[in-house]
Design a protein around this nucleic acid. Structure first.
Ligand code: MN
Ligand code: MN
Ligand code: ZN
Ligand code: ZN
Lengths: 151, 151
DNA sequence: ATTCTTATTGAAAATGGTTTTCATTATCAA
DNA sequence: TTGATAATGAAAACCATTTTCAATAAGAAT
């Protein structure tokens, strides 16, 4: 049972360890950005030109389901993905989204206070509404400095 | 300058008051749900069968831009819309989303505490990252009681 | 009330991200 | 090494949303 945590995750769910899955994980491990399926595909074919975009979608779906990656929709008409435990990233963070150029900033300011409140809220909500809560998102939407200058 | 606030909004931006726009507003005024463009379209053609789905999309876009409606993406592959000042709804609220059946609950528990923290965070973020922040979202994702029973 | 400008509309076609299909290939337990 | 079957890639299908364009209607000017 040696190997990275995400391989254990695959194993536990009865999924196989394949080359495309390893390549995709490595791409996500080596970026601090929020990549789209196409971003990942373009990067992946540098390593193995025979990988299909379909497989990228399927893999990201699978990883989302077993909690290895998180899928986000910031309202640009395409999903973006982030490795759950990315060594290059701040651990738990929230997002600041530019509605104009769609750039995304990970922030951790007040994140401890946020988390404390979110935990309290989560507890109350799960009781009151009988919800089993898995995770949460906090997004701020606005306009970045670059976009404001251009206007 | 008489008339509802959203009509003033149209006027201020130089847009015209049209029949489809009135119909769509009325649909949103009379629901406490989070409607998709198609939901609205299906309801709209009951009042005026000649309305096109294209117009529904264009109208919702316009209303989003001038702040009359809020557009949400809960990760189902389609957008949902909510009137900004809906008399049937709690004023400022956040969302609880079932990842299985996609049902959405508006909650206001701890919303004052949340808002207070969000304001503080917003101030810090807008300074630190030179962002002009317009609005925010808080979503909890989980599984509703009905879906949990079925599993 | 009538005219005129142009914003708005509806139908049809196009777009583009994502999913489905299906025959082939690769993983891994036996 | 073998067999069962999970995973893959290419092509086609899907489907929410956008674009195009000619016809219509809102509302300012007359
Ligand atoms: Mn992030
Ligand atoms: Mn709501
Ligand atoms: Zn920007
Ligand atoms: Zn549910």
């Amino acid at each position: 049972m040696r190997g990275p945590w995400w391989q254990k995750r695959l194993y536990d769910f009865g999924y196989r360890l394949t080359s495309p899955r390893q390549i995709i994980i490595n791409i996500l491990r080596n970026t601090d950005k929020h990549l789209s399926a196409e971003d990942i595909y373009i990067d992946a074919i540098k390593t193995n030109p025979s990988i299909g975009l379909t497989t990228v979608y399927r893999t990201l779906d699978l990883f989302s389901q077993i909690g290895v990656v998180q899928k986000f929709d910031f309202g640009e008409g395409r999903a973006r993905y982030e490795l759950t435990n990315n060594p290059l990233k701040k651990d738990h963070h929230h997002h600041l989204v530019c509605v104009n150029c769609k750039s995304i900033i990970d922030y951790t300011d007040f994140v401890n206070e946020e988390l404390e409140l979110m935990n309290k809220t989560e507890k109350a909500l799960s009781e009151k509404y009988q919800f089993n809560i898995f995770h949460h998102t906090i997004n701020f939407y606005g306009m970045c400095s670059k976009c404001r200058i251009k206007e």
